[in-house]
C-alpha cells in the first residue's frame, strides 16, 4: 500500500506547550512494498512523521494518503479510523501497552476493536503467537508474568494480529541485548517480506538501515533532507556529519581498510558480507 504526503505541516502539543510546525511542509511518496528507514537527530521529527501515518498526529495543512484513504485536517475524524485499520504501529517499548488478564485477550484486543469476530480473533492469536516464536501455552498466562523479551514479542503479536498492510516501527529493538534485537528485527523483516507489507522503521542504528532498508529518509529540523537508497546516503560523508548520523560498522571498516591499504574498493559496502565479497574481488583477501 502506497503512502503519499503532500505538503504536510503538523504541530505538536505536549501539555500546555505547543510546538508549531514540528513538520514543515513535507512531501514524499513511500513506495508500496518498500522497507523504509527514517533516521535523524532527536527532535528532528521522526516520531511525528510516523504518527502521521495512522492519524495519531493530524496535519494542520496538506494531506496524507494511505492507499485510498486520505487524511486532512477537515476529515480527520472519519479517515483516521480507516487508516488505523490498515496501519499497525509498534511503539518504542511496546510491552508497556499490555493490559489484559491473559496474553490471548491482549492479542485479540486489536482485531476485535476493528470488528473481527471473537472466534476468528482467537485463531489469529494462536497463529501470530507461534509466528513470533512463542509457545501456544503462553496464551493462557498473564502478560505480566512473562520475561521482558517475551512481553516484547507478545506486544508485537498484538499489532501483527491486526493484519496491517502497513507496518510502522519505532525502534522495536530498543533496550534489548544485541542478539535479542537482531531476532526482533529479523522477525519483523521476515513478516514484511512474507506479507508484502510497506514498512517504515525509525532507528538510530545505522546497521539496521544497512541490513534491512531499501530506502532511507533523513529528517532534519522537521524536513525531509534526503530520500534514496542507503548506499547513496552512506557515500555522502559531509552531509552525514551535518545531519548528526553515523556510518554502519561495515562501512567504517571499509573506509579504514581503504586508508590503511591505500586502495579504493569498487563499491560502497554496508554489510560485512558485502565487504568481504568486495575484498575478495579486489584481491585483498
Amino acid at each position: 500500500m502506497q503512502i503519499n504526503l503532500q505538503q504536510v505541516t503538523a504541530d505538536y502539543q505536549a501539555g500546555p506547550i505547543r510546538s508549531p510546525e514540528i513538520l514543515k511542509s513535507i512531501s514524499t511518496t513511500i513506495k508500496s512494498g518498500s522497507f523504509t528507514a527514517v533516521v535523524g537527530k532527536t527532535g528532528s521529527g521522526k516520531s511525528s512523521l510516523l504518527k502521521l501515518m495512522n492519524g495519531l498526529l493530524v496535519p494542520v495543512k496538506g494531506q496524507v494518503s494511505i492507499g485510498e484513504i486520505m487524511i486532512t485536517s477537515e476529515n480527520a475524524k472519519q479517515s483516521v479510523k480507516e487508516a488505523r485499520r490498515k496501519v499497525g504501529m509498534v511503539f518504542q517499548f511496546p510491552e508497556s501497552q499490555l493490559f489484559a488478564e491473559t496474553v490471548e485477550k491482549d492479542i485479540m484486543f486489536g482485531p476485535m476493536n476493528f470488528g473481527v469476530p471473537k472466534a476468528e480473533a482467537k485463531e489469529i492469536a494462536l497463529e501470530v503467537i507461534e509466528r513470533v516464536g512463542l509457545d501456544a501455552t503462553i496464551l493462557s498466562k498473564s502478560p505480566f508474568a512473562l520475561s521482558g523479551g517475551q512481553k516484547r514479542y507478545v506486544a508485537m503479536a498484538g499489532i501483527l494480529a491486526m493484519r496491517p498492510d502497513i507496518l510502522v516501527l519505532d525502534e522495536p529493538g530498543a533496550g534489548l541485548d544485541p542478539k535479542g534485537k537482531k531476532e526482533v528485527m529479523d522477525l519483523l523483516h521476515a513478516w514484511h517480506k512474507e506479507r508484502g507489507l510497506t514498512t517504515l522503521l525509525v532507528t538510530h542504528d545505522m546497521d539496521d538501515v544497512a541490513l534491512y532498508a531499501d530506502e532511507v529518509i533523513v529528517m532534519d529540523e522537521g524536513r525531509i533532507v534526503f530520500q534514496d537508497e542507503p548506499e547513496r546516503l552512506f557515500s555522502e560523508m559531509t552531509a552525514i556529519h551535518q545531519w548528526g548520523l553515523e556510518l554502519p560498522q561495515a562501512r567504517k571498516l571499509q573506509i579504514r581498510i581503504e586508508q590503511e591499504a591505500n586502495v579504493r574498493l569498487p563499491r560502497i559496502c554496508l554489510t560485512l558480507d558485502k565487504l568481504a565479497d568486495a575484498l575478495i574481488e579486489a584481491g585483498l583477501a
Partner: peptide, 18 residues
C-alpha cells in the same frame, strides 16, 4: 505520568480504541 498516559493512550488508539 502524564507523558506516559499519553503514550499508552496513543498505543491503544493505534490498536483501534476510540
Amino acid at each position: 505520568i502524564l507523558d506516559e498516559t499519553q503514550k499508552v493512550m496513543d498505543a491503544q488508539r493505534a490498536r483501534g480504541t476510540v
